[in-house]
Amino acid sequence: MLDNRTRKMGVNSPATFAKINIDERLYLGTIEKGLLVLDTFCANPRPMTLAEVSEASGLNKSATQRVLYTLRALRYLTHSETTRQYSLSARTMDIGNAYLRSNPIVEATFPYLLEANKRSQETVNLTELDGSDIIYISRVPSRSVMSSYVTIGTRLPAFATAPGRAIMANLSPSVTEDLLKTSDFAAITPYTITTRHELVDELEKVRRKGFAIANQEAMLGDISTAAPIFGYDNHVVAAVNIAASTANWTVEKVEAELSPIIVEIARQMSKVASQYRRP
């Protein structure tokens, strides 16, 4: 949680992830600090001063200055002598692009995203679970203005999204329980489910129906239906969803017309994804 000084500066702390089974003999704290600063820019996608980066990251100013200098020297950051602000450089895109190129599921399933887009005439997305968030790793947009709300790399809380629920409902009970514990159930829109009890009920519906629907819970004006994608050993590895506008669709119409498409496409994608054994 941000303290009062951080709130006044208008900066966000980066997302935190639990460290599991860390061997301190091998763990490099200097790399952690560097990545923490990069994560700070991800949480605050705008130019920031040294003081703002220090405040948001929790590092003292001396450590922050050294990290910023190093990242600038390595061309991961740029610096304005006029405003004294730092910004991410274009080079930081290399890491994300390398991940997408190295993920065989992204390329192998893209024709199915195209097929779902052709059949629905709406935006189709491929997402993975990362921590308690889903992250968009591939998409085929519709011609609707709604397409601009999400880009590849966008993160959203899994509990409030159809693809997040499609994945959560098909994880092992212990993993789902851990996700429920780490989800803060903060309202993103007036329609967001904000209690554990409601979400558990929704996940049970997903298991029973084979698909999830979220109505304006993560973005106003957006109705999404999603189905899980199963990989090697029948473990859920991703979800595919169709996002439609409330201007043209109702929940009932989405369930009747778009959910069958996404369930069929997810089955086809699962056959492809099951051929790849990932770490």
Rank of each mutant, 00 (worst) to 15 (best):
G29D: 12
D178N: 10
Y99F: 14
R5V: 09
K8W: 01
F110D: 11
P104E: 03
E81T: 12
Q275T: 13
P104D: 06
P157R: 02
K181V: 06
Y112H: 12
T82M: 11
Q216H: 01
T40C: 14
N248Q: 07
G164K: 09
A214Y: 00
E122H: 04
L156Q: 14
T82P: 00
E204N: 12
L156K: 11
E198Y: 06
L59M: 09
S270W: 04
R208F: 12
D23L: 04
A90G: 00
R101S: 13
A15V: 05
L35S: 10
T123F: 08
A187P: 01
T83A: 11
R46C: 04
G221P: 09
T40V: 12
R278M: 15
L35R: 13
R75V: 03
H197S: 14
A218Q: 05
S80Y: 10
S144H: 10
K209D: 13
L36K: 12
E81M: 11
N125Y: 09
D133N: 15
E128W: 00
A247D: 11
N215W: 07
L126T: 03
S144K: 10
D130N: 08
L171R: 03
D130M: 09
T182G: 00
A158Y: 03
D201M: 10
S57A: 05
V254K: 02
R196T: 10
S183W: 08
S102R: 13
D184L: 07
V251W: 00
M9D: 07
S144D: 12
T70F: 08
F230V: 12
Q121K: 15
A162Y: 03
K181L: 08
D94R: 07
I242L: 05
V106C: 13
D23M: 02
A90T: 06
A98Y: 01
L220S: 04
A90F: 01
L68I: 00
L28T: 03
K33A: 15
V11I: 09
A116K: 02
M219K: 07
S144G: 02
G164T: 09
R25F: 08
S80D: 15
L114H: 14
Q121A: 15
A90K: 05
F110C: 08
K205M: 13
V206P: 03
